[in-house]
Structure formats: C-alpha cells, structure tokens
Computed example of a mutant assay.
Amino acid sequence: MGVISDWNPIYYQWDQVQLPYYIPDTEAARRDVAAQYTTISRLDQGVGLVLNELKNSGHLNNTLIIYSSDNGIPFPNGRTNFYDSGIGEPMIISSPVHKERKHQITNSLASLLDIVPTLLDWYGIYNYKNMNSNDIKGSRQVLMGKSLLPLLIKGLTS
C-alpha cells in the first residue's frame, strides 16, 4: 500500500463486514472483502482528490468526468459471468452541464463501449459514423456503443 499524503485510510475489520449472499462465510472470504472495501475507500478518496485538483485549477465546471472499471468484483460469481455481481461495474459520470439528475443512480445497463460515443456527443461530434477508420482496408468505422449523456437528463436511454 503506497503512501499518499492526502489519503486517510479506512481499514475495515474482517470480522465485522457483512458479506453479500453469494460469498461463502469464511475467514478468508471476510478478509478479502474487508481488503476490497479498503481499496474502494482509497479509490473514493482518490476521486475526491482529483475533483479537488480540478476545482483548484478552475476546470471543475467545464470538465466531463467519467470513471469506470473493466470488470466487477473479484469474488465468486463476479467478473466473467452474467450474474448481477459479474456485470456490476463501477461507473461515475459527472457533467457540469447536466444538472437534472445530479447525485442520482440509474439501473440502465452501460458498457465501456459507450465511452467513445459519450465523448463524441459531449464534444458535439455527431458525424462520426462517416469518419474513415485507420484499418488497412479503409472501411468505415462502426462504433458499438451509444452516448450515455441522455442518462444524465432522463435516466433511460432510447
């Protein structure tokens, strides 16, 4: 565990954590979950430090913030399966423009494939479907995702 001067670690006690129903109730599992909670706490504080730097530099009110991970939790039924615990990945999107749903969550499914269309939408680039790809054949590039910005307004994508 590296040292970050602004980080005040929160250590979770393995014998006090509540386990999700799909994790076996063993000491080893409890220790792993407690370590995971400490990691998440460190991440949460790290996001706060980044937001503070954006604020101090005067860019918080003109920056689209997207945070995600490439997988779910590293526990049974997590990561590489289609159980809820396997497809649940963290994602935070914060826009200084979209205030309608500030501090709200959505149950809409999203994917990392949606990040590029979201950024293109943020920058007002709507003609991206006509852009040439960089592949050898020169075919048209197809993006598989869609913008997540509508989720910041009404909560559901169309």
Results as ranks from 00 to 15, higher is better:
Glu27Val: 12
Ser139Trp: 03
Gly124Val: 11
Ile65Glu: 05
Gly88Cys: 13
Leu19Phe: 03
Val116Asn: 11
Leu51Ser: 11
Ile4Met: 00
Asp70Thr: 04
Val97Phe: 11
Ile73Thr: 07
Ile115Lys: 11
Ser111Asn: 12
Trp7Ala: 07
Asn130Glu: 15
Leu51Pro: 03
Ile73Arg: 12
Ile10His: 12
Leu119Ser: 03
Gln141His: 05
Ile153Ala: 15
Tyr12Gly: 06
Asp121Ile: 01
Ser94Pro: 02
Ser5Ala: 10
Thr38Arg: 01
His98Pro: 01
Ile115Met: 13
Val142Lys: 09
Ser133Trp: 01
Asn81Leu: 05
Trp14Ile: 01
Asn62Cys: 07
Gly2Phe: 09
Gly72His: 07
Ser158Asn: 10
Pro76Ala: 08
Leu64Gln: 02
Arg79Cys: 06
Val50Gly: 04
Ala28Tyr: 07
Glu27Arg: 12
Gln104Pro: 00
Asn52Ile: 00
Pro90Lys: 04
Ile93Lys: 00
Asn130Trp: 09
Lys102Ala: 14
His98Leu: 10
Thr157His: 13
Ser85Glu: 07
Ala35Met: 13
Val50Lys: 02
Ile66Asn: 04
Ile136Ser: 10
Thr106Tyr: 03
Asn62Ile: 05
Glu27Thr: 14
Val47Tyr: 12
Ile4Asp: 01
Tyr123Ala: 15
Gly48Cys: 08
Gln16Phe: 04
Pro9Asn: 06
Glu27Tyr: 06
Asp15Gln: 08
Phe75Arg: 01
Asp6Tyr: 10
Gly72Val: 07
Thr39Trp: 08
Phe75His: 04
Ile65Lys: 02
Glu100Thr: 05
Ser158Gln: 04
Asn61Glu: 12
Gly145Cys: 04
Ser57Gln: 14
Gly138Gln: 01
Trp122Thr: 11
Gln45Ser: 09
His59Thr: 13
Gly72Phe: 02
Met91Ala: 11
Asn56Phe: 05
Ala110Gln: 06
Gly88Gln: 15
Ile153Glu: 15
Lys99Tyr: 01
Ile125Ala: 13
Val116Tyr: 10
Ile10Ser: 11
Pro24Leu: 02
Asn130Met: 15
Thr118His: 07
Lys129Ser: 14
Thr157Phe: 13
Asn132Gly: 08
Arg140Val: 01
Asn127Ser: 12
Gly86Lys: 00
Asp15His: 05
Pro9Ala: 08
Ser147Ile: 09
Leu143Tyr: 14
Tyr12Asn: 07
Ile93Glu: 00
Gly2Lys: 06
Gly155His: 12
Asp135Met: 08
Gly58Pro: 09
Gly72Arg: 06
Gln16Gly: 07
Ser158Asp: 11
Phe75Asn: 03
Leu120Trp: 09
Asp84Trp: 00
Gln36Trp: 02
Lys99Met: 07
Trp7Thr: 03
Val50Thr: 11
Gln16Val: 06
Lys99Trp: 00
Val116Pro: 05
Leu54Asp: 13
Ser158Lys: 02
Gly145Leu: 02
Tyr83Lys: 06
Phe82Cys: 10
Leu60Thr: 12
Met91Tyr: 05
Leu149Lys: 03
Met144Ile: 13
Gly86Arg: 00
Val50Leu: 13
Asn77Cys: 04
Thr80Asp: 11
Tyr128Ala: 09
Lys55Asp: 15
Tyr67Ser: 08
Arg101Ser: 12
Asn130Tyr: 14
Ser95Val: 03
Leu109Ser: 14
Lys129Asp: 14
Thr38Pro: 01
Ile10Gln: 14
Thr157Asn: 14
Pro90Asn: 02
Ala110Lys: 02
Leu119Trp: 00
Met131Tyr: 09
Leu148Asn: 06
Lys129Met: 12
Gly145Arg: 01
Gln45Ile: 06
Arg140Phe: 03
Phe75Trp: 02
Gln18Ile: 01
